[in-house]
């Protein structure tokens, strides 16, 4: 596993909102199943003293850290305040922030990520489903029933498409080490390269699947950066230029980042690219 394990204490920011409360319950249900520490505290400014599914709520991360040990944080706060939450976490000494929130203005994201870097804090997301190390820890909103513990690392800019491919891997008997949703925004914290570097150092991970989409060139950058056996799938071969395909980052701009040229570049560096999600397990089997 990478980023965290059973012993990782988790704080949820935006704990009292509908999403935050719902997913605290699911994350802690999983923690109970696997014998993990789970969410130890929630934070919502002005709501100290409340309890959400048995988890105490604090006004600030610093307050929560006086009573509990935690190194990871999951953010569900609304877009306008999410950049602030990332910086609060980094400044309080949290080493991993998972930002689920969608629609954060990109300038806020850039500033928050820059600030987090000054505090050696890694940011996963924003606009992501979080991560899941089967049998160890769930940070975010990924469904757990489709996954199985194993040796394949999965990195994706998408949510449900990840579940689709994870489901197919599991059905083919290929369990996963860690599944990381890095987010659908144009600017994200942890990129394919960052996650692949961690997978390389992870003895559990034998190969990785990168699930990309139109926009930018982070998939190719990641593939070039690693020696790990890789399989890729790129969504958006039918996406028209200059149209945002759901994700803020899924847009072909100025003739850059279209699926065909991405696929060609990946193939040129020797990465097999699945033409449909259902081909991924077969391509992985050919590698390991």
């Amino acid at each position: 596993m990478i980023y965290g394990d059973k012993h990782t204490g988790v704080i949820v920011q935006g704990a009292t909102g509908k999403q935050g409360a719902f997913h605290i319950a699911l994350m802690n249900e999983y923690a109970r199943q696997v014998g993990g520490k789970g969410v130890v505290a929630g934070v919502t400014p002005g709501k100290a003293g409340q309890e959400i599914h048995g988890v105490p709520v604090y006004n600030s991360i610093r307050d929560a850290l006086k009573d509990y040990d935690a190194s990871a944080q999951v953010i569900f706060v609304p877009a306008a305040a999410a950049g602030d939450s990332i910086m609060e976490a980094a400044s309080a000494g949290i080493s991993l922030v998972v930002a689920i929130t969608e629609h954060i203005p990109v300038h806020d994201t850039m500033r928050a990520i820059e600030f987090a870097k000054l505090h050696d804090c890694a940011v996963v997301g924003p606009n992501c489903p979080g991560l899941l190390s089967p049998g160890e820890i769930k940070l975010g909103i990924m469904p757990v029933h489709l996954s199985a513990r194993g040796h394949i690392g999965v990195i994706s800019r998408s949510g449900t498409l990840t579940y689709e491919i994870v489901d197919q891997l599991t059905r083919a008997g290929l369990g996963q080490s860690t599944i990381v949703g890095i987010g659908g925004d144009p600017v994200i914290g942890q990129t394919f390269s960052d996650v692949l570097a961690r997978f390389e150092d992870d003895p559990q991970t034998k190969a990785a699947v990168i699930i990309g989409e139109v926009g930018g060139g982070l998939e190719e950058e990641g593939a070039r950066s690693t020696d790990l056996p890789l399989v890729a799938y790129i969504a958006g071969i039918s996406a028209p230029p200059e149209k945002r395909m759901g994700h803020a980052g899924a847009i072909i701009e100025g003739g850059e980042g279209d699926a065909r040229s991405k696929i060609a570049r990946l193939k040129a560096i020797g990465v097999p690219v699945a033409s449909r999600p259902s081909e991924v397990p077969r391509l992985i089997r050919e590698l390991v």
């Binding site: 998408s158 498409l161 990840t162 699930i211 969504a235 039918s238 395909m245 449909r276 999600p277």
Partner: peptide, 17 residues
Amino acid sequence: IGNGAGLTMATLDLIEY
């Protein structure tokens, strides 16, 4: 109609396939 940008895009791609 899909849920999630990636899955919906992959559905379009599969139609083209």
